[in-house]
Design a protein around this nucleic acid. Structure first.
Length: 273
DNA sequence: ATAGGCCTGACG
DNA sequence: CGTCAGGCCTAT
């Protein structure tokens, strides 16, 4: 569900609300979602730990805890984190509850249960392979055009490459389509046919659309809500995503849908070559 | 590179 | 009923 912008919004809210808070206890109703260590070790390891910082890597949330531990949360397709007061309503599909010492609860809610959470020793991310192999952060200052060019080596379709978290972190199905439309590049293009100019355009487009999405509160296509349970507004600014048959906002041509790497892809056949 | 699987829910 | 869904892993 959430891609980089949505996770970044939640991260900022978590940081503002939870810095210094201490976890009193943790309830795990669906143990499948805890992938490291064992669910028991997870609960025991979290008990009494204070939150020192809240970070993000790609689509992963990273809570640095005292005692040299790191709590990692990936929201999968439909996961959300909701902050509620003690005894507040438990939404349907609440699978994990982090009870804080100040009486608030942090709820992990996830209907499709594609998410994952783990408790790691700080500095050792090997138990989470996706996190361990994460590509560069596209919004960092160091993410230059040359960085993107080297991430886009090979021969696969550019859309598949942008979805590959080991090439670039945090981009999913929505923002890959939106970025490629802004860049005027077809999602079907092979990497080895992209000119330096096109790579520059993709570079700017990716950073631009991710920043705008964060400002717009993220995309709530179906499930996404922030820490306070509020929906985003950026779905209204999508130019192609899930707009098959609608006119391209740039040229009026009908938006086309095609399946690439098993994912629906939306693009303008005229603007995107 | 592609299909299938993991799950539940919304919609036609 | 079938189709589709913001992610990611595995097996072919």
């Amino acid at each position: 569900m959430p891609e980089l912008p949505e996770v970044e919004i939640i991260r900022g809210q978590l940081e503002r609300e939870l810095l210094g808070a201490r976890i009193a206890a943790c309830e795990v109703a669906l143990t499948r979602l805890v992938t490291h260590p064992t669910p028991l070790g997870y609960r025991r390891g979290l008990k009494g730990r204070a939150i020192v910082s809240v970070g993000r890597r790609g689509k992963y949330l990273l809570f640095a805890l005292d005692g040299k531990r790191e709590l990692v949360v990936h929201l999968g397709m439909t996961g959300s984190l909701i902050l509620s007061s003690r005894g507040g309503a438990r939404p349907r599909h609440t699978h994990i509850v982090f009870h804080l010492e100040d009486g608030r609860d942090l709820l992990y809610v996830d209907p499709r249960t594609f998410g994952e959470t783990a408790l790691l020793r700080r500095g050792d991310r090997r138990p989470m392979r996706g996190l361990d192999r994460m590509g560069p952060e596209p919004l960092e200052d160091g993410f230059t055009c040359e960085c993107l060019a080297s991430a886009l080596r090979g021969t696969c379709r550019v859309k598949s490459a942008l979805l590959d978290q080991s090439r670039v972190a945090g981009i999913g199905n929505i923002y890959s389509d939106e970025a490629l439309h802004r860049a005027g590049v077809s999602p079907l293009r092979r990497l080895d046919t992209l000119s330096p100019t096109e790579i520059e355009r993709i570079h700017s487009a990716v950073r631009e659309v991710l920043r705008e999405a964060i400002s717009g509160g993220g995309s709530s296509v179906s499930d996404y809500v922030n820490l306070r349970g509020e929906r985003g507004a950026f779905q209204d600014d999508h130019r192609v995503y899930r707009r098959e048959g609608e006119p391209c906002p740039a040229c009026g041509t009908s938006i086309r849908r095609e399946v690439i790497s098993g994912r629906s892809s939306y693009f303008c056949p005229k603007c995107q070559k």
